[in-house]
Write a protein that binds this DNA or RNA. Structure first.
Lengths: 252, 252
DNA sequence: AGAGTACATGCATAAACGTGCAGCAACGTG
DNA sequence: CACGTTGCTGCACGTTTATGCATGTACTCT
Protein backbone atom coordinates (compact mmCIF):
# COMPACT_ATOMS: atom_id res chain seq x y z
CA UNK A 1 0.00 0.00 0.00
CA UNK A 2 1.31 3.41 -0.94
CA UNK A 3 1.92 5.94 1.78
CA UNK A 4 -0.45 8.51 0.26
CA UNK A 5 -3.08 5.82 -0.16
CA UNK A 6 -2.66 4.85 3.46
CA UNK A 7 -3.14 8.41 4.65
CA UNK A 8 -6.31 8.73 2.66
CA UNK A 9 -7.46 5.49 4.25
CA UNK A 10 -6.75 6.96 7.67
CA UNK A 11 -8.89 10.01 6.95
CA UNK A 12 -11.74 7.86 5.69
CA UNK A 13 -11.59 5.69 8.78
CA UNK A 14 -11.39 8.72 10.97
CA UNK A 15 -14.52 10.21 9.49
CA UNK A 16 -16.36 6.89 9.71
CA UNK A 17 -15.36 5.95 13.24
CA UNK A 18 -14.76 9.24 14.98
CA UNK A 19 -11.33 8.34 16.29
CA UNK A 20 -8.17 6.45 15.39
CA UNK A 21 -5.93 4.36 17.62
CA UNK A 22 -2.31 4.16 16.48
CA UNK A 23 -1.67 0.71 17.88
CA UNK A 24 -4.74 -0.86 16.27
CA UNK A 25 -3.98 0.66 12.91
CA UNK A 26 -0.39 -0.56 13.01
CA UNK A 27 -1.53 -4.12 13.65
CA UNK A 28 -4.28 -3.90 11.07
CA UNK A 29 -2.16 -2.48 8.26
CA UNK A 30 0.87 -4.53 9.13
CA UNK A 31 3.26 -1.64 9.61
CA UNK A 32 4.96 -0.17 12.64
CA UNK A 33 3.32 2.28 14.98
CA UNK A 34 6.05 4.73 14.11
CA UNK A 35 4.78 5.10 10.57
CA UNK A 36 1.23 5.53 11.74
CA UNK A 37 2.36 8.18 14.18
CA UNK A 38 4.27 9.95 11.42
CA UNK A 39 1.17 9.92 9.22
CA UNK A 40 -1.02 11.26 11.96
CA UNK A 41 1.52 13.94 12.77
CA UNK A 42 1.61 15.09 9.15
CA UNK A 43 -2.16 15.01 8.79
CA UNK A 44 -2.49 17.05 11.95
CA UNK A 45 0.05 19.56 10.64
CA UNK A 46 -2.10 19.90 7.51
CA UNK A 47 -5.11 20.58 9.73
CA UNK A 48 -6.92 17.41 8.66
CA UNK A 49 -7.08 15.79 12.06
CA UNK A 50 -6.26 16.50 15.67
CA UNK A 51 -3.53 14.54 17.38
CA UNK A 52 -4.23 13.12 20.83
CA UNK A 53 -2.38 10.72 23.09
CA UNK A 54 -2.86 7.25 21.64
CA UNK A 55 -4.17 8.23 18.25
CA UNK A 56 -6.15 11.01 16.61
CA UNK A 57 -9.62 12.53 16.46
CA UNK A 58 -11.29 14.59 13.71
CA UNK A 59 -10.14 18.19 13.43
CA UNK A 60 -13.59 19.69 12.98
CA UNK A 61 -16.04 17.21 14.51
CA UNK A 62 -17.10 16.48 18.04
CA UNK A 63 -13.97 17.46 19.85
CA UNK A 64 -13.54 20.79 18.14
CA UNK A 65 -17.18 21.55 18.80
CA UNK A 66 -16.92 21.16 22.49
CA UNK A 67 -13.33 22.21 22.89
CA UNK A 68 -14.02 25.42 20.98
CA UNK A 69 -16.75 26.20 23.42
CA UNK A 70 -14.49 28.32 25.52
CA UNK A 71 -11.27 26.51 26.16
CA UNK A 72 -9.31 26.68 22.91
CA UNK A 73 -8.83 30.37 22.37
CA UNK A 74 -11.31 32.35 24.41
CA UNK A 75 -9.46 35.62 23.94
CA UNK A 76 -9.00 35.20 20.22
CA UNK A 77 -12.64 34.22 19.81
CA UNK A 78 -13.85 37.18 21.79
CA UNK A 79 -11.69 39.61 19.87
CA UNK A 80 -12.99 38.28 16.57
CA UNK A 81 -16.57 38.35 17.85
CA UNK A 82 -16.43 41.94 19.01
CA UNK A 83 -14.88 42.98 15.70
CA UNK A 84 -17.80 41.34 13.94
CA UNK A 85 -20.43 42.78 16.26
CA UNK A 86 -19.08 46.26 15.57
CA UNK A 87 -19.87 45.83 11.87
CA UNK A 88 -23.59 45.41 12.55
CA UNK A 89 -25.42 48.68 11.98
CA UNK A 90 -28.65 49.40 13.89
CA UNK A 91 -31.59 48.51 11.67
CA UNK A 92 -29.59 46.25 9.38
CA UNK A 93 -30.24 42.62 8.58
CA UNK A 94 -27.54 40.09 9.32
CA UNK A 95 -27.24 36.34 8.74
CA UNK A 96 -25.44 34.43 11.48
CA UNK A 97 -23.93 31.04 10.77
CA UNK A 98 -23.83 28.32 13.44
CA UNK A 99 -20.86 27.62 15.67
CA UNK A 100 -19.27 28.80 18.84
CA UNK A 101 -17.61 31.83 17.28
CA UNK A 102 -20.91 33.21 15.99
CA UNK A 103 -22.37 32.46 19.38
CA UNK A 104 -19.68 34.73 20.79
CA UNK A 105 -20.86 37.40 18.33
CA UNK A 106 -24.33 37.25 19.87
CA UNK A 107 -22.82 37.64 23.31
CA UNK A 108 -20.85 40.63 22.06
CA UNK A 109 -23.99 42.36 20.77
CA UNK A 110 -25.44 45.24 22.81
CA UNK A 111 -28.57 43.92 24.52
CA UNK A 112 -30.72 46.72 23.12
CA UNK A 113 -29.51 46.69 19.51
CA UNK A 114 -32.41 46.89 17.08
CA UNK A 115 -31.67 44.71 14.06
CA UNK A 116 -32.86 41.62 12.21
CA UNK A 117 -30.95 38.39 12.62
CA UNK A 118 -31.46 35.44 10.31
CA UNK A 119 -29.91 32.12 11.31
CA UNK A 120 -30.11 28.39 10.68
CA UNK A 121 -28.78 27.58 14.13
CA UNK A 122 -31.27 26.86 16.92
CA UNK A 123 -28.52 27.60 19.42
CA UNK A 124 -27.98 31.08 18.03
CA UNK A 125 -31.73 31.66 18.00
CA UNK A 126 -32.05 30.62 21.63
CA UNK A 127 -29.16 32.90 22.59
CA UNK A 128 -30.95 35.87 21.01
CA UNK A 129 -34.10 35.53 23.10
CA UNK A 130 -32.90 38.08 25.70
CA UNK A 131 -32.24 40.68 22.99
CA UNK A 132 -35.67 42.25 23.08
CA UNK A 133 -35.21 44.61 20.13
CA UNK A 134 -33.64 42.07 17.81
CA UNK A 135 -35.98 40.45 15.33
CA UNK A 136 -34.98 36.81 14.85
CA UNK A 137 -35.85 34.69 11.85
CA UNK A 138 -35.02 31.02 12.04
CA UNK A 139 -34.43 29.00 8.86
CA UNK A 140 -36.11 25.63 9.20
CA UNK A 141 -35.07 22.27 7.83
CA UNK A 142 -33.48 19.00 8.75
CA UNK A 143 -31.19 19.36 11.75
CA UNK A 144 -27.60 18.40 11.04
CA UNK A 145 -26.54 17.00 14.39
CA UNK A 146 -22.83 17.49 14.18
CA UNK A 147 -22.98 21.28 13.99
CA UNK A 148 -26.51 21.74 15.33
CA UNK A 149 -27.68 23.70 12.30
CA UNK A 150 -30.39 23.08 9.74
CA UNK A 151 -29.27 21.84 6.34
CA UNK A 152 -30.67 20.21 3.25
CA UNK A 153 -33.21 21.12 0.61
CA UNK A 154 -35.81 22.64 2.92
CA UNK A 155 -33.26 24.86 4.62
CA UNK A 156 -31.82 25.98 1.30
CA UNK A 157 -35.30 26.77 0.04
CA UNK A 158 -36.05 28.83 3.13
CA UNK A 159 -32.76 30.64 2.69
CA UNK A 160 -33.65 31.57 -0.88
CA UNK A 161 -36.56 33.59 0.39
CA UNK A 162 -34.44 36.02 2.36
CA UNK A 163 -31.93 38.79 1.77
CA UNK A 164 -29.50 40.44 4.14
CA UNK A 165 -26.83 43.08 4.38
CA UNK A 166 -24.23 40.95 6.12
CA UNK A 167 -23.37 37.30 6.54
CA UNK A 168 -20.95 36.12 9.20
CA UNK A 169 -19.57 32.83 8.00
CA UNK A 170 -18.04 30.28 10.35
CA UNK A 171 -15.67 27.66 8.91
CA UNK A 172 -13.26 25.12 10.35
CA UNK A 173 -10.37 26.03 8.08
CA UNK A 174 -8.99 29.17 6.45
CA UNK A 175 -6.11 28.17 4.22
CA UNK A 176 -4.16 30.16 1.59
CA UNK A 177 -4.41 27.30 -0.92
CA UNK A 178 -7.50 25.30 0.08
CA UNK A 179 -9.61 28.37 0.79
CA UNK A 180 -12.53 28.21 3.23
CA UNK A 181 -13.35 24.66 4.27
CA UNK A 182 -15.63 22.69 6.57
CA UNK A 183 -16.10 19.05 7.48
CA UNK A 184 -19.42 18.24 5.79
CA UNK A 185 -20.51 18.60 2.17
CA UNK A 186 -24.14 19.40 2.93
CA UNK A 187 -23.15 22.01 5.46
CA UNK A 188 -20.74 23.55 2.98
CA UNK A 189 -23.58 23.88 0.46
CA UNK A 190 -25.80 25.57 3.04
CA UNK A 191 -23.09 28.05 3.94
CA UNK A 192 -22.62 28.76 0.23
CA UNK A 193 -26.33 29.40 -0.19
CA UNK A 194 -26.37 31.80 2.74
CA UNK A 195 -23.38 33.67 1.33
CA UNK A 196 -25.40 34.20 -1.83
CA UNK A 197 -28.22 35.90 0.10
CA UNK A 198 -26.09 38.62 1.67
CA UNK A 199 -24.51 41.70 0.13
CA UNK A 200 -21.30 41.20 2.14
CA UNK A 201 -19.83 38.05 3.63
CA UNK A 202 -17.22 38.06 6.40
CA UNK A 203 -15.40 34.99 7.66
CA UNK A 204 -14.89 34.63 11.41
CA UNK A 205 -11.41 33.19 11.89
CA UNK A 206 -10.13 32.74 15.40
CA UNK A 207 -6.49 31.80 15.67
CA UNK A 208 -6.78 28.02 15.46
CA UNK A 209 -8.64 28.23 12.12
CA UNK A 210 -5.89 30.07 10.30
CA UNK A 211 -3.80 27.70 8.23
CA UNK A 212 -6.15 24.75 8.85
CA UNK A 213 -8.08 22.91 6.14
CA UNK A 214 -10.97 20.44 6.16
CA UNK A 215 -12.41 18.10 3.58
CA UNK A 216 -14.98 20.26 1.79
CA UNK A 217 -14.56 23.71 0.36
CA UNK A 218 -17.26 26.26 1.16
CA UNK A 219 -16.01 29.09 -0.99
CA UNK A 220 -12.75 30.31 -2.48
CA UNK A 221 -11.09 33.12 -0.62
CA UNK A 222 -11.96 35.56 -3.39
CA UNK A 223 -15.70 35.09 -2.84
CA UNK A 224 -15.87 36.81 0.54
CA UNK A 225 -15.73 40.48 1.44
CA UNK A 226 -13.18 39.95 4.18
CA UNK A 227 -11.79 37.75 6.89
CA UNK A 228 -12.01 38.82 10.51
CA UNK A 229 -8.99 37.57 12.41
CA UNK A 230 -7.66 38.74 15.70
CA UNK A 231 -4.86 41.27 15.88
CA UNK A 232 -1.95 38.91 16.37
CA UNK A 233 0.55 38.77 13.49
CA UNK A 234 0.61 35.50 11.61
CA UNK A 235 2.35 34.10 8.52
CA UNK A 236 -0.97 32.72 7.26
CA UNK A 237 -2.43 36.22 7.40
CA UNK A 238 0.56 37.45 5.40
CA UNK A 239 -0.06 34.76 2.78
CA UNK A 240 -3.74 35.74 2.58
CA UNK A 241 -3.14 39.46 2.21
CA UNK A 242 -0.51 38.62 -0.38
CA UNK A 243 -3.34 37.15 -2.48
CA UNK A 244 -5.31 40.36 -2.19
CA UNK A 245 -7.67 39.03 0.48
CA UNK A 246 -8.95 41.64 2.93
CA UNK A 247 -8.09 40.70 6.49
CA UNK A 248 -9.59 42.71 9.34
CA UNK A 249 -8.34 44.34 11.46
CA UNK A 250 -5.95 45.80 8.89
CA UNK A 251 -4.33 46.94 12.05
CA UNK A 252 -5.50 47.12 15.61
CA UNK B 1 -11.04 4.27 24.32
CA UNK B 2 -8.68 7.23 23.94
CA UNK B 3 -8.35 9.63 26.83
CA UNK B 4 -9.36 12.60 24.68
CA UNK B 5 -12.31 10.64 23.36
CA UNK B 6 -13.35 9.82 26.88
CA UNK B 7 -13.34 13.45 27.91
CA UNK B 8 -15.48 14.31 24.95
CA UNK B 9 -17.84 11.57 26.00
CA UNK B 10 -18.02 13.07 29.48
CA UNK B 11 -18.99 16.45 28.06
CA UNK B 12 -21.65 14.89 25.86
CA UNK B 13 -23.10 13.00 28.79
CA UNK B 14 -22.99 16.12 30.89
CA UNK B 15 -24.96 18.05 28.35
CA UNK B 16 -27.51 15.29 27.93
CA UNK B 17 -28.03 14.46 31.58
CA UNK B 18 -27.29 17.70 33.39
CA UNK B 19 -24.84 16.18 35.84
CA UNK B 20 -22.13 13.56 36.15
CA UNK B 21 -21.30 11.20 39.01
CA UNK B 22 -17.65 10.11 39.18
CA UNK B 23 -18.34 6.72 40.70
CA UNK B 24 -20.96 5.74 38.13
CA UNK B 25 -18.78 6.82 35.25
CA UNK B 26 -15.82 4.85 36.55
CA UNK B 27 -17.90 1.68 36.75
CA UNK B 28 -19.50 2.33 33.38
CA UNK B 29 -16.30 3.02 31.49
CA UNK B 30 -14.29 0.40 33.30
CA UNK B 31 -11.58 2.69 34.64
CA UNK B 32 -10.69 3.94 38.08
CA UNK B 33 -12.40 6.86 39.76
CA UNK B 34 -9.04 8.57 39.91
CA UNK B 35 -8.94 8.93 36.15
CA UNK B 36 -12.48 10.25 36.03
CA UNK B 37 -11.64 12.76 38.73
CA UNK B 38 -8.54 13.80 36.84
CA UNK B 39 -10.62 14.29 33.69
CA UNK B 40 -13.25 16.32 35.50
CA UNK B 41 -10.57 18.41 37.16
CA UNK B 42 -8.99 19.22 33.80
CA UNK B 43 -12.31 19.95 32.14
CA UNK B 44 -13.23 22.24 34.97
CA UNK B 45 -9.87 24.01 34.66
CA UNK B 46 -10.67 24.55 30.98
CA UNK B 47 -14.01 26.06 31.95
CA UNK B 48 -16.03 23.26 30.33
CA UNK B 49 -17.77 22.09 33.47
CA UNK B 50 -18.10 22.91 37.12
CA UNK B 51 -16.69 20.56 39.69
CA UNK B 52 -18.89 19.55 42.60
CA UNK B 53 -18.50 17.01 45.35
CA UNK B 54 -19.10 13.60 43.83
CA UNK B 55 -19.04 14.63 40.19
CA UNK B 56 -19.61 17.66 37.97
CA UNK B 57 -22.34 19.92 36.59
CA UNK B 58 -22.44 22.03 33.40
CA UNK B 59 -20.55 25.30 33.38
CA UNK B 60 -22.88 26.85 30.83
CA UNK B 61 -25.52 29.03 32.49
CA UNK B 62 -28.07 28.03 29.86
CA UNK B 63 -27.87 24.34 30.64
CA UNK B 64 -27.84 24.98 34.34
CA UNK B 65 -30.92 27.08 33.84
CA UNK B 66 -32.78 24.23 32.19
CA UNK B 67 -31.61 21.87 34.88
CA UNK B 68 -32.91 24.24 37.52
CA UNK B 69 -36.24 24.77 35.85
CA UNK B 70 -36.60 21.05 35.63
CA UNK B 71 -35.95 20.78 39.32
CA UNK B 72 -38.69 23.29 40.19
CA UNK B 73 -41.49 20.81 39.70
CA UNK B 74 -39.64 17.66 38.89
CA UNK B 75 -42.21 15.14 39.96
CA UNK B 76 -45.33 16.19 38.13
CA UNK B 77 -43.46 17.30 35.03
CA UNK B 78 -41.36 14.14 34.86
CA UNK B 79 -44.33 11.87 35.34
CA UNK B 80 -46.19 13.58 32.52
CA UNK B 81 -43.10 13.56 30.32
CA UNK B 82 -42.37 9.87 30.76
CA UNK B 83 -46.03 9.07 30.06
CA UNK B 84 -45.71 11.01 26.82
CA UNK B 85 -42.36 9.49 25.88
CA UNK B 86 -43.82 6.02 26.29
CA UNK B 87 -46.38 6.82 23.59
CA UNK B 88 -43.68 7.37 20.97
CA UNK B 89 -43.23 4.25 18.87
CA UNK B 90 -39.85 3.54 17.26
CA UNK B 91 -39.96 4.77 13.67
CA UNK B 92 -42.89 7.10 14.20
CA UNK B 93 -43.06 10.82 13.54
CA UNK B 94 -43.91 13.14 16.38
CA UNK B 95 -44.41 16.90 16.63
CA UNK B 96 -43.11 18.48 19.84
CA UNK B 97 -44.41 21.85 21.00
CA UNK B 98 -42.19 24.29 22.85
CA UNK B 99 -41.98 24.66 26.62
CA UNK B 100 -40.32 23.09 29.61
CA UNK B 101 -42.69 20.14 29.77
CA UNK B 102 -41.93 19.07 26.21
CA UNK B 103 -38.26 19.58 27.00
CA UNK B 104 -38.74 17.06 29.78
CA UNK B 105 -40.20 14.68 27.19
CA UNK B 106 -36.96 14.89 25.23
CA UNK B 107 -35.00 14.09 28.36
CA UNK B 108 -37.28 11.15 29.02
CA UNK B 109 -36.60 9.71 25.57
CA UNK B 110 -34.19 6.77 25.29
CA UNK B 111 -30.93 8.10 23.83
CA UNK B 112 -30.98 5.56 21.02
CA UNK B 113 -34.63 5.81 19.98
CA UNK B 114 -35.00 5.96 16.21
CA UNK B 115 -37.81 8.34 15.30
CA UNK B 116 -38.55 11.62 13.56
CA UNK B 117 -39.18 14.72 15.63
CA UNK B 118 -40.69 17.88 14.17
CA UNK B 119 -40.61 21.02 16.30
CA UNK B 120 -40.86 24.79 16.11
CA UNK B 121 -38.76 25.24 19.24
CA UNK B 122 -35.03 25.84 18.83
CA UNK B 123 -34.57 24.76 22.44
CA UNK B 124 -36.13 21.37 21.79
CA UNK B 125 -34.05 20.98 18.64
CA UNK B 126 -30.85 21.74 20.53
CA UNK B 127 -31.78 19.25 23.25
CA UNK B 128 -32.18 16.51 20.63
CA UNK B 129 -28.65 16.84 19.29
CA UNK B 130 -27.29 14.02 21.51
CA UNK B 131 -30.00 11.64 20.27
CA UNK B 132 -28.02 10.22 17.38
CA UNK B 133 -30.80 8.13 15.87
CA UNK B 134 -33.52 10.77 16.06
CA UNK B 135 -34.17 12.69 12.88
CA UNK B 136 -35.00 16.29 13.75
CA UNK B 137 -36.88 18.70 11.52
CA UNK B 138 -37.04 22.29 12.63
CA UNK B 139 -39.89 24.53 11.47
CA UNK B 140 -38.52 27.93 10.57
CA UNK B 141 -40.08 31.34 10.93
CA UNK B 142 -40.09 34.45 13.05
CA UNK B 143 -38.97 33.77 16.60
CA UNK B 144 -41.57 34.59 19.22
CA UNK B 145 -39.39 35.67 22.11
CA UNK B 146 -41.72 35.01 25.01
CA UNK B 147 -41.95 31.26 24.42
CA UNK B 148 -38.83 30.86 22.27
CA UNK B 149 -40.71 29.21 19.42
CA UNK B 150 -41.21 30.17 15.80
CA UNK B 151 -44.58 31.63 14.84
CA UNK B 152 -46.23 33.57 12.08
CA UNK B 153 -46.99 33.02 8.42
CA UNK B 154 -43.69 31.43 7.48
CA UNK B 155 -43.84 28.95 10.34
CA UNK B 156 -47.43 28.04 9.53
CA UNK B 157 -46.52 27.53 5.89
CA UNK B 158 -43.64 25.26 6.86
CA UNK B 159 -45.96 23.32 9.15
CA UNK B 160 -48.42 22.76 6.32
CA UNK B 161 -45.77 20.78 4.50
CA UNK B 162 -45.48 18.10 7.13
CA UNK B 163 -47.51 15.26 8.61
CA UNK B 164 -47.03 13.30 11.80
CA UNK B 165 -48.46 10.51 13.89
CA UNK B 166 -48.43 12.36 17.19
CA UNK B 167 -48.44 15.93 18.45
CA UNK B 168 -47.59 16.75 22.05
CA UNK B 169 -49.27 20.07 22.79
CA UNK B 170 -48.14 22.33 25.58
CA UNK B 171 -50.58 24.92 26.91
CA UNK B 172 -50.78 27.19 29.92
CA UNK B 173 -54.33 26.26 30.85
CA UNK B 174 -56.54 23.18 30.76
CA UNK B 175 -60.03 24.14 31.87
CA UNK B 176 -63.34 22.22 31.76
CA UNK B 177 -65.15 25.28 30.37
CA UNK B 178 -62.55 27.38 28.56
CA UNK B 179 -60.75 24.41 27.04
CA UNK B 180 -57.09 24.58 26.10
CA UNK B 181 -55.66 28.07 26.31
CA UNK B 182 -52.41 30.00 26.00
CA UNK B 183 -51.26 33.61 26.42
CA UNK B 184 -50.64 34.71 22.84
CA UNK B 185 -52.96 34.71 19.83
CA UNK B 186 -50.28 34.06 17.25
CA UNK B 187 -48.88 31.20 19.29
CA UNK B 188 -52.35 29.73 19.70
CA UNK B 189 -52.78 29.77 15.94
CA UNK B 190 -49.47 27.99 15.45
CA UNK B 191 -50.41 25.29 17.96
CA UNK B 192 -53.72 24.88 16.17
CA UNK B 193 -51.94 24.47 12.84
CA UNK B 194 -49.64 21.85 14.31
CA UNK B 195 -52.56 19.94 15.77
CA UNK B 196 -54.02 19.78 12.28
CA UNK B 197 -50.90 18.07 10.93
CA UNK B 198 -50.92 15.12 13.33
CA UNK B 199 -53.19 12.10 13.48
CA UNK B 200 -53.35 12.27 17.27
CA UNK B 201 -52.87 15.23 19.61
CA UNK B 202 -52.09 14.84 23.30
CA UNK B 203 -51.98 17.71 25.78
CA UNK B 204 -49.20 17.75 28.35
CA UNK B 205 -50.74 18.95 31.59
CA UNK B 206 -48.57 19.07 34.66
CA UNK B 207 -50.41 19.78 37.90
CA UNK B 208 -50.40 23.57 37.82
CA UNK B 209 -52.05 23.66 34.37
CA UNK B 210 -55.18 21.81 35.42
CA UNK B 211 -58.04 24.18 36.10
CA UNK B 212 -56.16 27.20 34.80
CA UNK B 213 -57.16 29.31 31.81
CA UNK B 214 -55.43 31.98 29.70
CA UNK B 215 -56.58 34.63 27.26
CA UNK B 216 -56.60 32.76 23.95
CA UNK B 217 -58.09 29.40 23.18
CA UNK B 218 -55.98 26.96 21.23
CA UNK B 219 -58.56 24.24 20.78
CA UNK B 220 -61.70 22.95 22.45
CA UNK B 221 -61.21 19.91 24.65
CA UNK B 222 -63.04 17.74 22.13
CA UNK B 223 -60.41 18.37 19.46
CA UNK B 224 -57.64 16.43 21.12
CA UNK B 225 -57.10 12.70 21.46
CA UNK B 226 -56.28 12.89 25.13
CA UNK B 227 -54.78 14.79 28.01
CA UNK B 228 -51.72 13.49 29.80
CA UNK B 229 -51.84 14.45 33.49
CA UNK B 230 -49.94 12.98 36.34
CA UNK B 231 -51.42 10.26 38.49
CA UNK B 232 -52.66 12.39 41.34
CA UNK B 233 -56.43 12.56 41.76
CA UNK B 234 -57.96 15.93 41.00
CA UNK B 235 -61.44 17.42 40.76
CA UNK B 236 -60.57 19.08 37.46
CA UNK B 237 -59.71 15.67 36.06
CA UNK B 238 -63.08 14.44 37.22
CA UNK B 239 -64.81 17.34 35.46
CA UNK B 240 -62.89 16.61 32.28
CA UNK B 241 -63.62 12.89 32.22
CA UNK B 242 -67.23 13.75 32.94
CA UNK B 243 -67.28 15.54 29.57
CA UNK B 244 -65.98 12.45 27.86
CA UNK B 245 -62.42 13.71 27.59
CA UNK B 246 -59.77 11.01 27.75
CA UNK B 247 -57.30 11.66 30.55
CA UNK B 248 -54.17 9.54 30.79
CA UNK B 249 -53.24 7.69 32.84
CA UNK B 250 -56.77 6.34 33.19
CA UNK B 251 -55.19 4.33 35.89
CA UNK B 252 -51.57 4.23 36.99
C1' DA C 1 -19.59 14.53 66.96
C1' DG C 2 -18.60 10.41 64.36
C1' DA C 3 -18.74 7.39 60.36
C1' DG C 4 -18.25 7.02 55.71
C1' DT C 5 -17.05 8.73 51.40
C1' DA C 6 -14.74 11.76 48.18
C1' DC C 7 -10.66 14.04 47.46
C1' DA C 8 -5.56 15.48 46.49
C1' DT C 9 -0.95 14.02 46.49
C1' DG C 10 2.96 11.10 45.75
C1' DC C 11 4.73 7.13 43.64
C1' DA C 12 5.42 3.07 40.50
C1' DT C 13 4.43 0.95 36.18
C1' DA C 14 3.43 0.61 31.54
C1' DA C 15 2.35 2.59 27.43
C1' DA C 16 3.01 6.15 23.97
C1' DC C 17 5.96 9.53 22.22
C1' DG C 18 9.94 12.03 19.60
C1' DT C 19 14.40 11.72 17.75
C1' DG C 20 18.39 9.96 15.67
C1' DC C 21 20.18 6.37 12.91
C1' DA C 22 20.57 2.67 9.55
C1' DG C 23 18.63 -0.19 5.84
C1' DC C 24 16.23 -0.35 1.61
C1' DA C 25 13.76 0.59 -2.54
C1' DA C 26 12.53 3.92 -6.18
C1' DC C 27 14.12 7.30 -8.98
C1' DG C 28 17.01 10.43 -11.74
C1' DT C 29 21.36 11.46 -13.86
C1' DG C 30 25.62 10.66 -16.22
C1' DC D 1 24.61 0.11 -16.23
C1' DA D 2 26.67 2.54 -12.29
C1' DC D 3 26.14 5.88 -9.03
C1' DG D 4 24.24 9.24 -5.87
C1' DT D 5 20.07 11.15 -4.10
C1' DT D 6 15.75 11.04 -2.02
C1' DG D 7 12.05 9.37 0.66
C1' DC D 8 10.01 5.81 3.36
C1' DT D 9 10.44 2.48 6.90
C1' DG D 10 11.71 0.11 11.20
C1' DC D 11 14.59 -0.07 15.33
C1' DA D 12 16.79 1.74 19.65
C1' DC D 13 17.06 5.04 22.98
C1' DG D 14 15.68 8.40 26.41
C1' DT D 15 11.58 11.21 27.63
C1' DT D 16 6.87 12.24 28.47
C1' DT D 17 2.23 10.87 29.65
C1' DA D 18 -1.57 8.25 31.50
C1' DT D 19 -3.10 5.22 34.84
C1' DG D 20 -3.89 2.75 39.26
C1' DC D 21 -2.76 2.19 43.99
C1' DA D 22 -1.67 3.88 48.65
C1' DT D 23 -1.65 7.43 51.96
C1' DG D 24 -3.37 11.18 54.54
C1' DT D 25 -6.79 15.00 54.42
C1' DA D 26 -11.30 17.28 53.66
C1' DC D 27 -15.90 17.03 53.13
C1' DT D 28 -20.90 15.46 53.80
C1' DC D 29 -24.52 13.25 56.10
C1' DT D 30 -26.67 11.33 60.05
Amino acid sequence: MLAAERRDHLLTRLQAEGSLVAKELAAELGISEDSIRRDLRDLAAAGLCHRVYGGAVPASPALADYANRESVEPDSKRRVASQAAALIQPGSTVILDGGTTTLAVVQALPADLGCTVITHSPTIAAALVPHARAEVFLLGGRLFKHSAVTCGAAAAEAANGIAADLFFLGVTGVHPVHGLTTGDADEAAMKRTLAGRAADTYVLASTEKLGAASRYQVLPLSAVTGIIADGTPNETVAALTGQGVTVLPLQA
